[in-house]
Nucleic acid binder design. Structure first.
Lengths: 353, 353
DNA sequence: AAGTTTCATGTAAACGATTACATAGGGACG
DNA sequence: CGTCCCTATGTAATCGTTTACATGAAACTT
């Protein structure tokens, strides 16, 4: 029943090396396609003997399951979407690596979407998830997608499992993986105060951003603990980028009564700010202490090396990916994970003379 | 013929908002599924009237085509794989952004694979492409995948369109997008020489790497043009990372007769090296000039700011994506694109006293 | 020894699109 | 007015899996 040329054999003589299908494997192993499928998905449900034959046939044919067919039938893509605000930002690279590692080990692939502040792209990726191209998503951008179209007949789009990473999304009931931004910022502020600094400037993140809100709150907490007054004039607007740091530096050096320390809420800004400070002929830390946040790779090798808050970026990525995988595989998933940060003391901050 | 409940209507009363299929749209617009499909893929082959009805029905149902079904039938995934050696490396971020932008505009999604030096992962992603999960790939890792298994019955795997980015793959007949590393390195070397430096150290990339080979060749070219002898003792091994730069710096400061200038073949190494040099009590550029390569964001804000070779990273990414899209859509694609680099003169290099 | 589970497998119906082929209607042309 | 061609559409096969259901054999129960 298997030697007689059936009907798909004839074109075998053709040239184009057609990819092997499950049927080819089944025929070669003299089992049904169902058995082949089971041998791959649930080996324990297939006899040792049949399993061996299938394995052999797979090796012989070089069979690789067709993902599209698999997805179509099973509704599983084994793909995860990672949404982030700016791919070019150094801060995300290591997080991405943590995510990728973990997803990879679990057999998931990673699709990246760089939102780039464009609502158009956002809409596109919303459709992307709606179309079922991914099983779940990790959101680093601090908000959900602009959900489904309204319209009368339109059914609510089923939403896929989501995880928020770094920027919590308070309104959403999804796992949140983050650090305690408020506590970390407070700690840094207290550290500066403990060294005798009384006029501490704060270079903020983008207005409205949740990280910014938390860190700002932490800054004020820290001042309060140190019995220092909060002075709005010492808050300089920023947006976490190097350029924002450069601009903040310009504002800083132009001030008549300068602060003795600056707390930048990102290392990128701290590094950009130091650049401007140097160009203005001032010295860090002699004339002014500078602290950062994030502990990116360059913080340790900056000149002077940067006192900052260490974020376990790789671990953050891993934790988020794990949480999502739990969700996808129906396991209970932690609602909120807060990883520990560290105060890393280097050379850019010194006690007030 | 369309008002009478056929057989998929009954469960309509159910709750789970089932995603609309092409059949639902067809029924609502009173046309066949073929017409709906055509209205989307080739609107010009559908009458204005029918097209309008289909549009309306799509809006009403919120229909989004199922990508798996589409791929299964048409063999197109509209996905591109980007293979890179190290996702955490700053250098790649902006390239990725360039790639993503261009792919996005053309309707393609991007899947990222961080090889991480693991052959296991490499094999995995080779299978990935073989399984037809992507239409094409952009390779930033400097070599092809370890191709198909051998075995007797195994047919050669059909290979998908590929593009090599940054690290050329000489053996492969695929579009190569790169800069002229040799010319750029030569230029920098001559620049240093023109400023009076006679003992110029060279911090290399990883041995065997094609970029390294070209840049090293360029370094020697530059020495020759400047009538300087090549001294192997002045070559310090590196691998483009910050840490390698730090180590190179240690070797450098330990030398008895120190060079007066160092050409680091990556900015990351240059920045790491300067760190060590400072720690040893030397000054850049007063005691030693340091040059980099790449012009990453931090080069401009390093202290001192870094003289380097500017690579148009975003444009490199865009060019690679464009070339791949050309290939995928059957258009002729350029065989080799070399984008221009620039010598960026900043403060880390000064004339020899 | 008859009834009940369990196990290993096969059969065939989905999954939701695309597209080759067929068909019908309407000019254009001689 | 018949023939040919073009346009717009419909019918139904196909893409390659997974999986609900059916089947028969073997292993336990009682």
């Amino acid at each position: 029943m298997d030697d007689i040329g059936q009907k798909d054999e004839p074109e075998q003589s053709g040239f184009s090396a057609r990819a092997a299908r499950i049927q080819d494997v089944a025929k070669l192993a003299d089992v049904s396609t169902a058995t082949v499928s089971r041998a791959l998905a649930t080996p324990e449900r297939v006899s040792l003997e049949a399993r061996a034959r299938v394995q052999e046939a797979i090796a012989k044919t070089g069979y690789v399951p067709n993902p599209a067919a698999r997805t179509l039938r099973s509704q599983k893509t084994y793909m995860v979407l990672v949404v982030l605000p700016d791919l070019a930002n150094t801060f995300f690279s290591k997080i991405l690596r943590g995510i990728e590692e973990t997803l990879f080990e679990a057999g998931y692939g990673m699709i990246i979407s760089d939102l780039d502040g464009s609502p158009e792209k956002e809409a596109h990726f919303a459709a992307f998830t709606a179309a079922g191209r991914v099983d779940g998503a990790i959101l680093l951008n601090g908000h959900l997608f602009g959900q489904s179209r309204d319209g009368e007949g339109s059914p609510a789009r089923l939403s896929i499992p989501l995880v928020a990473l770094c920027e919590a999304i308070p309104s959403a009931d999804i796992p949140q993986i983050e650090i305690d931004n408020r506590a970390a910022a407070s700690r840094m502020t207290q550290h500066l105060a403990a060294l005798g600094h009384k006029r501490i400037a704060y270079v903020s993140g983008p207005a409205g951003n949740i990280l910014e809100r938390e860190r700002f709150q932490g800054f004020k907490d820290g001042l309060e603990r140190a019995d220092l007054p909060y002075d709005p004039a010492l808050v300089i607007p920023g947006d976490y980028t190097i350029e924002a740091g450069v601009r903040a530096g310009q504002i800083l050096v132009a001030q008549t009564t300068r602060p003795t320390a600056v707390f930048c809420t990102s290392d990128q800004m701290a590094i950009g700010l130091m650049r401007t400070v140097f160009s203005a002929g001032l010295k860090v830390p002699d004339d002014i202490s500078v602290a950062g946040f994030d502990d990116i790779e360059f913080a340790a090798v900056a000149e002077p090396s940067l006192t900052t808050i260490h974020q376990p970026r790789r671990e953050l990525g891993q934790a988020a990916a794990s949480a999502l995988i739990d969700l996808l595989q129906g396991r209970p998933s932690p609602k909120r994970i807060r990883l520990e940060t560290d105060l890393v003391i280097r050379d850019s901050v010194v006690p007030l003379r």
